[in-house]
């Protein structure tokens, strides 16, 4: 009997070792927001090749895209994301607070507030800018049709909303009530609320609705790249510094044994190669050397920050986007 048990254990051990020896295929899931599809399509391929060269392991990065708020909720509800690369820190904070999948101080784990690239909000208008839209003030004029997604579900839409609010605060000398009225007028000109930025691109570009699309800078350039001369980018006098952050989801990577590759994946975003890819896809790189190289592509704009004007994302979310916040008050009217 003892001989049989020993033999069985030997066979089992050998089988396990054999499985281990061939277990070189790794899959991780990057849950991201709407406009990053094209960037991560290319970035994933470059990273996978690099990882293979360094470790011999085949890594496949699956992507999931949607409105940032919806994506964060999916992770909270159990979507097994190894990493998230979302539109704003508030949505990742929600993952830390509600699902406790990551530590609360997640944002200090990587450089630059865990935002390896930044972006801003610009205006995409139709060729020739027939409505003469140059700044935020033009968006509230009667007869101007504005396309922007729903700030309840889209990170990009929240940046749009806050940029417009900040513009009006700057113009009227800090009158919050005036800013709220300005936003109310702006949303009166919004005929369709998509759930995410990519949906709004479809509304504006493919369905031909609206005069101006409040867009991520990269999304605007992608539309021009794809549809050529039909559109123009307008840089408003002031916009907002959008810092899309990234993090590994600790409990998922530890459970799945993917921490090493997930961390390497995010660190690669900060490398020169990763920054070049970000710039190629119209995200503003953080690395000074790469940013200098692409200076022409990203004009200087007066960029306000969420911390300076709104006291950070938690406060901005509570005031404007939580149930009963200013957006509900405005859009409900």
């Amino acid at each position: 009997m003892k001989h049989t048990i020993k033999k069985t254990l030997t066979v089992l051990t050998a089988a396990l070792l054999a499985v281990g020896a061939t277990a070189k295929d790794i899959t991780i899931l990057n849950v991201s927001y709407d406009p990053t599809r094209e960037f991560y399509d290319e970035f994933n391929q470059v990273f996978a090749a690099k990882w293979k060269a360094e470790t011999g392991e085949n890594v496949t990065i699956k992507q999931s895209h949607g409105g940032a708020g919806k994506q964060a909720r999916a992770v909270i509800d159990g979507l097994q994301a190894d990493v998230v690369t979302l539109a704003l820190a508030y949505d990742i904070d929600a993952i830390a607070e509600k699902a406790r999948l990551i530590p609360k101080e997640w944002q200090s784990r990587l450089p630059d507030n865990s935002s390896p690239y930044v972006s801003t909000i610009v205006f995409l208008v139709r060729k020739g800018n027939p409505k003469g839209i140059k700044d935020w003030g033009d968006l509230v004029k009667p007869g101007v049709s504005v396309i922007t997604p729903n700030p309840k579900t889209s990170g990009g839409a929240r940046w749009n909303y806050l940029a417009a609010w900040a513009y009006e605060l700057g113009r009227n000398g800090g009158d919050q009530a005036g800013a709220q009225e300005f936003i109310r007028k702006l949303y009166k000109n919004v005929p369709v609320l998509d759930s995410g930025a990519r949906g709004s691109t479809t509304t504006f570009v493919q369905r031909g609705i609206g005069d101006v699309f409040l867009s991520w800078e990269n999304e605007a350039y992608l539309a021009i790249k794809e549809f050529g001369d039909d559109y123009e980018v307008v840089f408003p006098s002031v916009s907002i510094l959008a810092e899309p952050p990234v993090t590994v989801i600790d409990k998922v990577v530890d459970k799945r044994g993917t921490r090493a590759v997930a961390e390497a994946y995010l660190n690669f975003l900060y490398s020169e190669e990763g920054q070049e890819l970000a710039a190629k896809h119209f995200y503003r790189p953080r690395l000074a050397s790469v940013a200098a190289k692409h200076k022409q592509r990203f004009p200087d704009i007066n960029l306000i920050t969420i911390d300076d004007v709104f006291g950070g994302w938690q406060e901005a979310q509570a005031t404007h986007f939580n149930d009963g916040g200013t957006f509900d008050q405005i859009y409900g009217k």
Binding site: S145, V192, L193, D194, S195, R207, G208, I209
Partner: peptide, 17 residues
């Protein structure tokens, strides 16, 4: 034309939702 397009898009979004 814009109004019809908007109605179409709203229906499209409602279907997606």
């Amino acid at each position: 034309d814009q109004k019809v397009r908007i109605l179409e898009r709203k229906l499209e979004i409602a279907d997606e939702n």
